[in-house]
């Protein structure tokens, strides 16, 4: 065996050992971590929706939306969510009310420009469902929050980019976040958020 062949055999053996170790059960986290990094989708603001619903006068559910959402997500066991909503982008279909919503009585957007959710854990709970636990920060108040997430699909989008989507719906008490303006029958304390995001990678 000449020296070149010996070197080739040694390097092949070394690669096999590395590959073998990677395939062993103890090597799974390394693979998972690699997959996690490649599975992170950046939020596509144009095809994403963040809606909120509040009960008005105790007779109807009023819906509004935020027009700017950013962040990234990886919907998988051990994945993550890091979502940021621009408080200034609130849209209630009334320009005057939008200004009120951005001001001190509600979101205080000049002081707290972003509403964020950052997950700590993400567990698979069903075929397409996951449970994300993390922290919601709204108006400078950070609170733990657990939400159920439904993966709505994966595919190929424009420019052959991989796209994925998910949706979640959850209810918070706005007074717990310091948004205490007119809490009562006129404007409920409970606010339901419907977050449907599409991301691309």
């Amino acid at each position: 065996m000449n020296r070149r062949l010996l070197a080739f055999s040694a390097s092949t053996l070394a690669l096999s050992i590395v590959a073998g170790v990677a395939l062993l059960p103890s090597g799974q986290p390394a693979v998972a971590a690699e997959q996690s990094a490649s599975d992170v989708y950046k939020v596509d603001n144009v095809h994403s929706s963040v809606l909120f619903s509040v009960r008005h006068n105790n007779v109807s559910n009023f819906y509004g939306r935020f027009n700017k959402v950013d962040g990234s997500f990886n919907i998988a066991e051990g994945g993550s969510l890091d979502i940021s909503v621009d408080a200034d982008s609130v849209d209630s279909n009334n320009a005057s009310r939008d200004k009120h919503l951005r001001a001190a009585d509600f979101f205080s957007a000049a002081e707290f420009p972003a509403i964020t959710f950052k997950s700590n854990t993400l567990k698979k709970t069903g075929e397409n469902t996951f449970e994300a636990s993390g922290e919601l920060t709204l108006r400078g108040t950070k609170k733990p929050l657990t939400v159920t997430i439904t993966e709505t699909g994966r595919g190929t989008g424009r420019g052959n980019k991989q796209v994925a989507g998910f949706e979640t719906r959850f209810t918070i008490k706005r007074s717990e976040f310091g948004v205490s303006y007119q809490v009562g029958p006129g404007l409920s304390d409970d606010v339901t958020l419907i977050v449907s995001l599409q991301g691309a990678k």
Partner: peptide, 14 residues
């Protein structure tokens, strides 16, 4: 009226 008395104040309103 504010329905809140928080320390440390989280916001200017607090």
């Amino acid at each position: 009226l504010a329905g809140r008395f928080a320390w440390p104040p989280a916001s200017a309103s607090d």
